[in-house]
Design a protein around this nucleic acid. Structure first.
Lengths: 234, 234
DNA sequence: TCAGAAGAATTAACTGAATAGTTAAACTTG
DNA sequence: CAAGTTTAACTATTCAGTTAATTCTTCTGA
């Protein structure tokens, strides 16, 4: 495809005195690479990898199109970079370690709060990731593998067994009713992620603007732990 | 954009005797228009409108690329047709009339069964629709409006109030705990739709193949009504 | 302290490939 | 043969990526 030379990229010279003219765009002139990446994030998350145009990213960043290639070599490379960041952010929205002895109520609340509070800052990421994952499933495995350093194919059954063991001990203690780990995990993720995935639909069909969606999320921070806890009562 | 002539399309002559040669493709030769539409459905739902190529659709249908334009005028028109069908199918997956006096258990069960049993026949539709809706939100309103004949902006608050009234009466009867209609509806749709939207992720990360997903759905038909009913206990 | 060289950053203009869409002729069938 | 259908070959456009020249920044040494 593209030539196999080593990357032409060098670290841009440290500082940059006040930009004199920024093409019809009075942005405080951040680092160019950063501006491109920000622009790419906007355009890719809105239009998807296939729907995005390099020209649109360049315009959004207020730079020449050649600069995108100068800094990121190819559309694919730029898209991969943005996608990888998105996955990283979304993985970070799940509490990494959970206190196994904490009351159920606290567990659910911690999950809900961490997720909602993280993702609401970039509310279109889940829809973007879902779309990309649908159109290009292999990419997800590759990216997760390169982020976590482990093949999710190996790790996920392990996680599943661990969660199942946790559930089983709670069930034995009479704290919750039995359920398969798959379902509890999928149910939790469904309740957390779907409203974000369907954000556009809520917006266009239910006329839910940003403010209304924000209120909706505020309510949800309280509603969801209650909902989940109730659902799991013995 | 494209020229504004009236559509060149005519109804294809009724029948068609045995196709002699079908380009490296021994399909029983259905109606050409149908074959194209089937192919378009496959390609568009997999790759999305932006990612799909007319050439791929032509190949999948086993016809010349010019035929796609002969029957459907433009890529956009074909894409719209496929998207409209998808929305129609997904709307049909929601029980239209609900028996308002039925026990809660039956209501939830009917919702879950209708949705799962309908959508499992075309398990990639929700992911496709979510992706398209995300990349092109206005399209959803337009299509729903043209299908139902009413602006969803007008109809959705009405539905919301109706559901809220139903909830309130059940709450008064001591059958369920109070909840805002928005949340109950979003929660239900989340639990139903998300596993389909995340189908690719379940497949690639959790190595869930078609058979495993089918079993998962079978379990879910029983698990979800229980989960929802429990969650709503007073 | 400043000329000017070296290299990094940026641009306008271009190229080539992919791809949607068109046309005109050939084929099929009632 | 006539209307509808199908095809091969073509055109036009869009778009990722390249090139070569230009401007900006930093550094060197007299």
């Amino acid at each position: 495809m593209t030539k196999a030379k080593d990357p032409p990229k060098r670290r841009p010279a440290a500082a940059k005195s006040a930009k004199t003219s920024r093409t019809a765009n009075a942005i405080p002139a951040a680092d160019t690479e950063t501006r491109i990446l920000d622009a790419a994030r906007v355009v890719f998350t809105r239009a998807g990898t296939a729907g995005a145009r390099m020209q649109d990213i360049a315009r959004e960043a207020g730079v020449n199109q050649a600069l995108l290639h100068y800094y990121f070599r190819s559309k694919q490379a730029l898209a991969d970079r943005v996608f990888r960041e998105a996955v990283t952010t979304l993985l970070a929205a799940l509490p990494g370690v959970i206190r196994q002895d904490a009351p159920l109520e606290e567990l659910f609340r911690s999950f809900v709060r961490t997720y909602i509070d993280t993702v609401r800052k970039t509310p279109f990421l889940p829809a973007y990731m879902a779309a990309e994952a649908h159109h290009n499933p292999e990419r997800v495995v590759a990216v997760i593998e390169s982020i976590t350093g482990t093949d999710p194919h190996d790790k996920s059954p392990q996680l599943l067994r661990k969660v199942q063991a946790l559930i089983d001990s709670r069930v034995a203690a009479g704290e919750m009713r039995p359920i398969r780990a798959e379902h509890l995990m999928v149910n939790t993720m469904s309740l957390l992620a779907f409203p974000f995935v369907a954000r556009s639909i809520l917006g266009s069909v239910y006329a839910m603007d940003d403010a209304a969606f924000d209120r909706f999320l505020d309510e949800r921070r309280d509603e969801l732990p209650r909902f989940l806890l109730n659902a799991m009562r013995p």
